[in-house]
């Protein structure tokens, strides 16, 4: 005999939205209970600022002259890109534990868990970004392109980061283990991050590397940042469309990645272990 029937609640929002909200909240709460992870994510960008701004920076010549102003828009996107690494490891860990099995036996929308992961990762990356900006200001970087453009630039970084997070989720879902996810994710983020215009001007690279660096989406993102912040860049290399239109490239590419990868991740998630 049941004293009181437990019936589903009624809501105005579709369940898929409510479920994604619940999942996001869960991951956010988890994330905030790992202060060591947050500390690490904040510390790494600071180390990068010191390492590249001062250790290597003194010997690097860039167009426009001021290396630290040149560097900061690059380090912002570097930090964003490395964030996608931890999401890949996180989701691969989820998949190897029993918790996903439980979620799959609940009447939750199939999309909820991966969407919750993506949104919470984006939000949990914000403290690191804020620290990064403070560091950049402390070492003399200044956005001189106006407040609106600076805001647009950070919006662009977050959009770019959201696309990178979805790629991270994809890798995490396809990897057989969290260690595998770490390695698989590490190689492309390393290559994309370093063979680009983040740290140096690709004009001085050998021709074959230069092609990669010029067309690298990271370079477009960084160029968009430098333009919008009004930081020195010098003339763009000839014939590289993505660097001539860096803002449009970054927005378009990020949206295309999310539009393709997100539905694929949802399908992959619901088929795992079947």
């Amino acid at each position: 005999m049941r004293q009181q029937a437990i019936v589903p609640a009624a809501t105005r929002l579709p369940w898929s939205v409510v479920d994604a909200y619940t999942a996001t909240r869960r991951y956010l709460r988890r994330g905030m209970r790992q202060p060591d992870v947050i500390f690490g994510s904040v510390l790494i960008p600071v180390i990068f600022v010191v390492l590249f701004g001062y250790v290597f920076g003194g010997s690097i010549k860039v167009p426009g002259g001021n290396y630290r102003s040149y560097l900061m828009p690059g380090l912002f996107s570097q930090a964003i890109l490395f964030g996608s690494n931890s999401v890949a490891v996180g989701i691969a860990t989820d998949m190897s534990e029993g918790v996903i099995d439980r979620f799959k036996t609940l009447p939750i929308a199939r999309s909820a868990i991966v969407i919750g992961r993506a949104i919470s990762s984006l939000l949990l990356g914000i403290p690191a970004m804020v620290v990064m900006i403070l560091c950049a200001l402390a070492v003399g970087w200044r956005p001189t392109g106006g407040l609106g453009n600076a805001a647009l630039a950070f919006g662009l970084y977050e959009l770019f980061g959201f696309a990178a997070i979805w790629l991270g989720i994809l890798v995490g879902l396809l990897a057989q283990s969290s260690q595998a996810a770490d390695v698989i994710m590490g190689i492309p983020t390393f290559l994309l991050g370093f063979i680009s215009n983040v740290f140096v001007d690709p004009a001085n690279m050998p021709a074959w590397l230069r092609v990669f660096a010029d067309w690298n989406p990271m370079s477009a993102m960084v160029t968009a940042g430098r333009q919008l912040f009004g930081n020195s860049i010098g003339p763009p290399p000839p014939g590289v469309w993505s660097l001539d239109h860096p803002v449009v490239t970054t927005i378009g590419l990020s949206i295309v990645i999310v539009a393709i990868v997100a539905p694929f991740c949802v399908r992959r998630y619901s088929r795992i272990s079947r």
Binding site: P8, A9, V18, I108, A112
Partner: peptide
């Protein structure tokens, strides 16, 4: 609480 919400019981229930 989270499992309850995923079962669509609503926050209070």
């Amino acid at each position: 609480d989270i499992i309850g919400r995923f079962c669509h019981l609503g926050a209070a229930t």
